[in-house]
Design a protein around this nucleic acid. Structure first.
Length: 465
RNA sequence: GGCGGCGUAGCCAAGUGGUAAGGCAGGGGCCUGCAAAGCCUUUAUCCGGCGGUUCGAUUCCGCCCGCCGCCUCCA
């Protein structure tokens, strides 16, 4: 079965057909590094992580580029307000961003090009656009003339005549001197407010507009025409629409084959906002003591085109699910000697998982297949019907699926301290002596010290609480 | 005002024109000295509400309500 993804451009699922067989060029819109990223941001990066991991699992060689926006209005304002240099701020938050990616187990892209390192490329692209007649200059700034690109609006399915200028209330339509308020800036002329944030270029003194960085960097690293471009749904318009206009007009080629956008995250059914007090950065949640893996579980386990309702109850539930998988792995690891095979069950599980993910990354159905496998296999483990080889094969399956999901791995190794081991031995003696009061007391002591004791047919087992 | 998405058990969340996956939590049971883990079983006569199409709709259509997104620099 072919992999099918929903293409925002055509509002339908399409078979994945890479431009170069076996290889996928992937561009994902990255963060503006002016603050700590919030969990909604990571919902997007998590979806992209799942996409990339799955493509690799299916044998594709993925070349992934994510930009870092390090020059932009909010950043310049922050510079002005704090007196810190642009570089100081962006360096700090870029570092924080990468730490957060690691915390969540999000795999790194091949490159994270920053806008300020690509001003010449942006200038070159703007010149191309100018030479082809897609731009005009006004008060030192250069704008893209939307009317010069008939396909404008194709991605967002927007009828330009119906576009209400300033309808969002976010932008003052008198802010810039444009021929048409719908035109967007490629190059912004320097103003006093920009402080020392400017570049002296052939286009004059100023700084690049926002959209041009993605066009310039995507084409530089992935070519004029590449496979997949991702972002949050809010990027569809205007950002991605503008990227298409710039890139197509500059290069004369189709820009991207497949546009994939994830829905937003809401918290307890409400939009995340500071005024509602439900705005969380990853660091906020970690500080509250939540397990990063549980956060990953919540972010990754909802289909990417569905709104993800982030709740603390779901976060706790995710923790229990993780424990169930880990306990299962421990059981498998303890199996010794010959016994029954799991080949059929493993193949069925993996096929179901793959069929689900092939269908536009249906992770919920994929995970259901994993849980079905866990339940059925636990049953056979109870019956003593599984051999060591089968057990290892089951663990290998979990490892393969963990490479895709990042939530099915083993618990981190934690050595059992000697005094804990001694307590376990003491308890065994107490049980042999039928001194159950003493045995229970020791079990409580262990728990108080962070260890759960379980009696199994093969003797006691301790695990971190 | 325009465009789009979502609304499924206590919570998270799949899904289909033919009568509701999975996880967590809860109830009952098996196992256990007791637990834990595991297993079995149970929890939506019903899929926001009201109509319509249909032999039949949660699934298609219309209206309403609620939540969310975009409408020129927000994932």
């Amino acid at each position: 079965m072919a992999i099918r993804f929903y293409n925002s451009m055509h509002r339908a699922k399409e078979d994945l057909q890479p431009i170069e067989p076996g290889k996928v060029g992937l561009y994902t819109c990255g963060p503006t590094i002016y603050n700590f990223a919030h969990i909604g941001n990571f919902r997007a990066y998590m979806f992209e992580d799942l996409l990339k991991r799955y493509l690799r699992y299916r044998g594709y060689e993925v070349h992934h580029i994510m930009n870092l926006t390090d020059v932009e209005d909010k950043l310049i304002r922050t510079c002005r307000e704090t007196g810190e240099s642009l570089k100081t701020i962006t360096t700090r938050y870029a570092q924080a961003f990468f730490e957060d990616l690691d915390t969540l187990g999000i795999e790194r892209a091949e490159a994270y090009p920053a806008a300020t390192d690509h001003v010449p490329e942006m200038v070159a692209m703007i010149k191309q656009l100018r030479d082809k007649g897609h731009t005009y200059e006004s008060e030192g700034s250069i704008y893209f003339r939307i009317s010069s690109f008939p396909e404008y609006g194709k991605l967002a399915h927007i009828n330009l005549d119906e576009l209400q200028a300033g309808g969002s209330g976010r932008v003052d339509s008198d802010e810039y001197e444009r021929e048409d308020v719908r035109d967007f800036a490629l190059w912004k002329a320097y103003t006093e407010d920009d402080g020392d944030v400017f570049w002296e270029t052939e286009l004059g003194k100023g700084r690049p507009g926002w959209h041009i960085e993605c066009s310039a960097m995507a084409t530089k690293y992935l070519g004029n025409h590449f496979d997949i471009h991702c972002g949050g749904v809010d990027n569809i318009f205007p950002h991605h629409e503008n990227e298409i206009a710039q890139s197509c007009c500059a290069t004369g080629h189709q820009f991207v084959n497949l546009w994939m956008h994830c829905a937003h995250l809401v918290v307890e059914g409400k939009k995340m906002s500071k005024s509602l007090g439900n705005f969380y950065t990853l660091r906020d949640l970690i500080a509250k003591g939540y397990d990063p893996l549980a956060i990953r579980w919540v972010l990754v386990s909802t289909h990417y085109r569905q709104p993800n309702n982030f709740t603390f109850e779901a976060l706790d539930a995710a923790g229990h699910s993780i424990q169930r998988v880990r306990d299962f792995r421990v059981r498998l690891g303890e199996v010794k000697g010959p016994g029954g095979s799991l080949d059929e069950a493993i193949a069925a599980c993996e096929q179901a998982f793959q069929d689900a993910l092939d269908d536009d990354l249906n992770i919920a159905v994929g995970l259901a297949a994993v849980f079905d496998f866990i339940r059925d296999t636990n049953k056979r483990l109870d019956a003593g019907d599984i051999g060591e080889d089968a057990s290892k094969a089951a663990l290998a399956l979990l490892d393969r699926l963990d490479a895709v999901t990042g939530i099915l791995g083993a618990a981190p190794e934690r050595a059992v301290p000697e005094e804990i081991q001694q307590l376990v031995l003491d308890r065994q003696q107490a049980r042999r002596d039928k001194n159950f009061a003493r045995a229970d007391e020791i079990r409580d002591t262990l728990l108080a010290q962070g260890w759960v004791l379980e009696d199994t047919a093969d003797g006691p087992r301790v695990k971190p609480a």
